[in-house]
Amino acid sequence: MILENLKYSKTHEWVRLDEGNFAVMGITDYAVQQLGDIVFLDLPKIGAKVTEGQPLGVIESVKAAVDLYSPVTGEVVEVNAPLANDFETLAKDPYSAGWMAKIRVAGADALKHLLSAAEYQKLAEGEAKP
């Protein structure tokens, strides 16, 4: 499932721009499916300065550890801390209750480089082929 109104990174994060230049991010449903059973989540600290394309956290499944990349540049102002102990919510509702971090960005332009839903759909389909 890919939501029309979100922007996406090539590394399978989604981003939504809220009023006041706050970018809310999480990982896509496709990423959740690919990871399988999620068993560990390390979220960034509030106040952390994050850079587009750089790791801001780690997610681990039984199989492997995968870096979470910041889709935007800015400062983390809020994290969904309870999610680190509730992987079921992350798996069931990655686009809403499964949000991970809220990042203050300079403006709407901070999301300009990201993929549209259609572009991300194409990327995910390409990867899914054996």
């Binding site: 399988g36 059973d37 499944s61 039984v62 199989k63 054996p130």
Partner: peptide, 20 residues
């Protein structure tokens, strides 16, 4: 099953329910 290459074989790494 999610199939993967393993030791030269095309093998299931997991089925629908998952590893856990």
């Amino acid at each position: 099953a999610k199939m993967v290459e393993f030791g030269g074989w095309w093998m299931p790494i997991q089925y629908r329910e998952g590893i856990v």
